[in-house]
Deep mutational scan, measured.
Amino acid sequence: TTLTVNTQTYTFTSEEEAREFARRYGAKTIRKTNGTWEVHG
């Protein structure tokens, strides 16, 4: 199964959650914005 996250942004309140998600789905960018963490595919 392949998950494609081209134009979607996922927002997390903790860096740990964001990094775990990025690691699991191979997202390329993690960015902190206004106190939340954004993961970009």
Rank of each mutant, 00 (worst) to 15 (best):
residue 30 I to T: 06
residue 24 R to V: 08
residue 21 F to G: 01
residue 10 Y to S: 03
residue 35 G to Y: 03
residue 26 G to E: 04
residue 6 N to L: 12
residue 11 T to G: 03
residue 40 H to M: 15
residue 3 L to N: 14
residue 15 E to D: 02
residue 19 R to M: 11
residue 24 R to M: 10
residue 18 A to E: 00
residue 22 A to S: 02
residue 13 T to N: 09
residue 26 G to L: 04
residue 4 T to V: 13
residue 41 G to R: 07
residue 22 A to D: 01
residue 14 S to A: 03
residue 33 T to Y: 07
residue 16 E to A: 11
residue 41 G to W: 15
residue 40 H to D: 13
residue 37 W to A: 01
residue 33 T to S: 12
residue 28 K to L: 12
residue 2 T to M: 11
residue 3 L to H: 14
residue 33 T to M: 10
residue 26 G to P: 03
residue 28 K to M: 12
residue 29 T to S: 09
residue 14 S to G: 02
residue 20 E to V: 02
residue 13 T to I: 08
residue 14 S to P: 00
residue 39 V to N: 00
residue 16 E to N: 06
residue 17 E to V: 04
residue 27 A to V: 09
residue 33 T to V: 14
residue 40 H to N: 09
residue 17 E to Y: 02
residue 11 T to E: 07
residue 32 K to D: 04
residue 25 Y to C: 15
residue 18 A to Y: 01
residue 34 N to G: 06
residue 33 T to D: 13
residue 1 T to E: 13
residue 31 R to G: 04
residue 30 I to N: 03
residue 12 F to H: 00
residue 39 V to W: 01
residue 23 R to M: 08
residue 36 T to S: 07
residue 41 G to L: 15
residue 31 R to N: 07
residue 19 R to F: 09
residue 31 R to K: 11
residue 1 T to A: 12
residue 28 K to N: 09
residue 22 A to T: 01
residue 27 A to R: 05
residue 7 T to G: 10
residue 28 K to V: 15
residue 4 T to D: 14
residue 30 I to C: 09
residue 16 E to T: 07
residue 26 G to S: 04
residue 34 N to A: 05
residue 11 T to S: 09
residue 19 R to N: 10
residue 23 R to K: 13
residue 11 T to H: 08
residue 34 N to P: 02
residue 12 F to T: 01
residue 11 T to F: 12
residue 39 V to L: 02
residue 3 L to E: 13
residue 25 Y to D: 02
residue 27 A to H: 13
residue 5 V to G: 13
residue 5 V to A: 12
residue 25 Y to K: 04
residue 34 N to L: 04
residue 16 E to L: 07
residue 17 E to H: 03
residue 41 G to Q: 09
residue 15 E to P: 02
residue 7 T to Q: 10
residue 38 E to Y: 06
residue 21 F to S: 01
residue 35 G to H: 04
residue 41 G to H: 14
residue 37 W to D: 01
residue 4 T to S: 11
residue 35 G to T: 04
residue 25 Y to I: 15
residue 18 A to I: 00
residue 10 Y to D: 02
residue 4 T to H: 13
residue 32 K to L: 13
residue 8 Q to C: 15
residue 17 E to T: 03
residue 18 A to R: 00
residue 19 R to L: 13
residue 41 G to C: 15
residue 3 L to T: 13
residue 14 S to N: 10
residue 2 T to W: 04
residue 1 T to S: 12
residue 8 Q to H: 14
residue 18 A to M: 02
residue 31 R to L: 11
residue 1 T to C: 15
residue 19 R to S: 04
residue 20 E to K: 06
residue 41 G to D: 08
residue 39 V to T: 02
residue 22 A to N: 01
residue 36 T to E: 09
residue 16 E to R: 07
residue 22 A to G: 03
